[in-house]
Design a binder for these strands. Sequence first.
DNA 1: TGCTGTGCACTAGCTTACTAGTGCACTATA
DNA 2: TATAGTGCACTAGTAAGCTAGTGCACAGCA
Lengths: 130, 130
Amino acid sequence: MSVDPNNPIPIYQQITDYIRRSIAAGVYRPGEMIPSLRVLALELTVNPNTVQRAFETLEREGLIHPRKGLGMFVTRHGATSAQSQSRTAVYETFVQGIRAGYDANMTTRRIRGVFEQAARDVATEVRSAK
Amino acid sequence: MSVDPNNPIPIYQQITDYIRRSIAAGVYRPGEMIPSLRVLALELTVNPNTVQRAFETLEREGLIHPRKGLGMFVTRHGATSAQSQSRTAVYETFVQGIRAGYDANMTTRRIRGVFEQAARDVATEVRSAK
DNA sequence: TGCTGTGCACTAGCTTACTAGTGCACTATA
DNA sequence: TATAGTGCACTAGTAAGCTAGTGCACAGCA
């Protein structure tokens, strides 16, 4: 993974999203330890505190929990929680897009068409990235 | 219209979006003048400069153009431009959501399902608002 | 020709968010 | 028992973004 300082999305959130996705995708499994503060900070050339902030939100979300002196571990239900959270995030994004469409006086049919095109485009993009 | 100061989206952008949507929806037609800086500022209880900033972006987008001493007028192709811009905005939002889905290891089928549900939810929400 | 309404430019203050620096308490392990 | 690796708490600086204040030049109209 890498972090883009120029991205308007703050670094700590980029890290949060990345770890959450990794847990959802099964890269880090329940009971496993995720990379430590300093390891991540060193790898991303970022202050440990920035990583810490990402950990806080993930802990608040119930995806990871700390074991004193050891590290952060993926929660028992971390994977399923992460998946359902990812799902709601996707859902919210779609709702936002659809609302914007209606606000701009687009028809349901037209909005659907835009989604289909986006789906095709991203699908080919993902396929070619493999 | 009203403006929400607590909304994380900055006020000037809320105003920008509102006017853009209004032009796309045909509330303000090509050749017509849109409400002036001070009128909008007074109505929204906001500093004229904040409205001014909204005007700048709309002018940069080619939706409105100024006539000295008179006001801001909707461009000849303002309506169609606004519509196509709204369309790209919706498209980009969808792309973002779909990408997030793939990143979280969701299948294409599942992503589609989430969209369908969002579409249904927003549709009923819009219908009941009428 | 004065008055009113228009956009525009300049400055300034403020708040908020983000990142960095640093030290401390805890655990496992040799 | 010493050492190295963990998360965590506190402070502080910095940067950027947003909003407000104010005055100026221009156009129409009575």
